[in-house]
């Protein structure tokens, strides 16, 4: 029981760092700053719902799809690591954040909010990898639980952020983004290394 519970916690933390709720939510707040607080909360709710759907789909048929395409789990780790590393790098050295203006609130829901801000490639790959690492039936069940928990976290984080957004300082947001950037970069490299080592072993 406790092993399974540990599995849930580790998986949750993995997805948590990969999807980075705090910078994600803050980025959303800064993107949607032109909306009224009420609208902002409404859009955030819808975005979370769409993201939940995407992640559940990924858990449900992600690894089957990989098998169909003849992709080894190790190469998927390498690819996921590359994507995560890129996200981390972009968070550390942002290119241009000013380009995200001139959009209406509704157009934010799916992109960039649900994908890739909430359920980005990082979250999707860590969910698929988590699903492939789940061996027992309760563990497979816990993958879904972890996804729902993450979405609940996002929901709460959005709620807090939307109600507190006027008090948040840009410096604080920046520091959080950089910190998570370092973490994500590290996770990306770990994934890549695991993938490469796994590939070498299978030779």
């Amino acid at each position: 029981m406790s092993v399974d519970f540990d599995f849930l916690i580790t998986l949750y933390l993995k997805i948590f760092t990969a999807s980075a709720p705090i910078p994600g939510v803050m980025m959303y707040v800064s993107i949607a700053s032109f909306l009224t607080p009420r609208e902002r909360w409404r859009v955030a709710q819808k975005g979370t719902a769409v993201a939940t759907f995407i992640l559940i789909c990924a858990v449900f048929c992600g690894s089957e799809l990989l098998r169909l395409m003849g992709i080894d789990m190790n190469t998927f780790r390498v690819a996921g690591g590359l994507v995560l590393g890129k996200i981390g790098w972009d968070m550390l050295y942002p290119k241009d954040s000013a380009s995200e203006s001139s959009v209406s609130g509704k157009s934010l829901i799916v992109t960039p909010l649900a994908f890739p801000l909430i359920a980005g490639p990082g979250a999707v790959s860590s969910v698929i990898i988590g699903q492939s690492e789940a061996v027992t039936v309760p563990q497979k069940f816990y993958v879904y639980a972890a996804v729902l928990l993450i979405m609940l976290t996002f929901y709460i984080a959005f709620y807090i952020a939307c109600s507190l957004s006027k008090y948040m300082k840009p410096v604080f947001i920046q520091i959080c983004t950089k910190l998570f950037g370092i973490l994500i970069l590290a996770i990306g490299f770990k994934l890549m290394t695991f993938g490469v080592v796994g590939l070498l072993k299978s030779v």
Binding site: L65, L66, D72, V78, A79, T111, F115, P116, P121, V124
Partner: peptide, 14 residues
């Protein structure tokens, strides 16, 4: 495109 890009990246590495 974003989702299939992820799969395609894995395919190319493979």
């Amino acid at each position: 495109a974003r989702l299939s890009g992820l799969l395609l990246l894995a395919m190319s590495v493979q």
